[in-house]
Design a protein around this nucleic acid. Structure first.
Lengths: 120, 120
DNA sequence: TCGTCACATTGATGGTTGTCAATGTTACGC
DNA sequence: GCGTAACATTGACAACCATCAATGTGACGA
């Protein structure tokens, strides 16, 4: 199970690892790493959470409970999983936790799947 | 854009449903649909399987057991999940089942994540 | 028709995961 | 210090999932 990590170091805990699927075969460790990231994306609550964060520049944890209809511990659980996957980053300011997406990670994951090139 | 993939022999086929996460908020049904597809990608065995199929134009089921180190029922289970997610398509010729990837579906899923444009 | 091959399905099992109540921790205002 | 607000952690439970042995199904060759 995931070891306990201080929030500050969750940033960059997982980086998208792999070249496009059709380019070369995935090793077992690469597959495991990518599967963890896709696993973070495999829950509808987390996807809506990610969508909520992505459509704003920053979102407070307290602003997620009501639209998602989940309890505070559940919200905390899901933000942690998204953060450990490198998809979002959090910063604590005062009593509030502010989250934003990591576009580079989203693009990296997209690049694993895309058979056409992702450009800037 | 996300066109339906004809999968005559596969029930419950899913097509990538959603516009980019940062563009508009996902509905619950969209999130559920996308989560199913990402769920298909959240297992290391299925990712290596998809990679094996993607690096060839066609792969027989019988050619997957040995490199993946899984039993025949397990291979059958995983190909089914990938097919139901619309990521691969299968065709039975004689006694053999031949699988190929569905690039349009892979690109559609990538497009949900990418914050930059996917081009040719 | 018979036996075999390639694959699908079923059933069972051990491990994983989403959820929330209860509790712990840290920051703020008084 | 005291009380409270925002979030994290723990513990427990039900639901889900990956895996394989056993079995079923359809296709081929003899």
């Amino acid at each position: 199970m995931a070891r306990l990590i201080p929030l500050a170091t969750i940033k960059g805990a997982a980086a998208a690892c792999c070249s496009p699927l059709s380019e070369s075969e995935l090793s077992e460790s690469e597959a495991q790493q990518a599967a963890t990231i896709f696993g973070a994306l495999s829950d509808p609550v987390r996807l809506r959470m990610l969508s909520l964060i992505a459509t704003e520049s920053e979102v407070c944890s307290c602003a997620l409970e009501e639209p998602l209809g989940k309890s505070q511990p559940t919200i905390s659980h899901h933000t942690r999983i998204l953060a450990e996957a490198g998809l979002i980053e959090g910063e604590k300011r005062g009593r509030w936790m502010w989250w934003h997406v990591v576009p580079e990670q989203l693009n990296s994951v997209a690049n694993i799947l895309a058979t056409t090139r992702v450009t800037h």
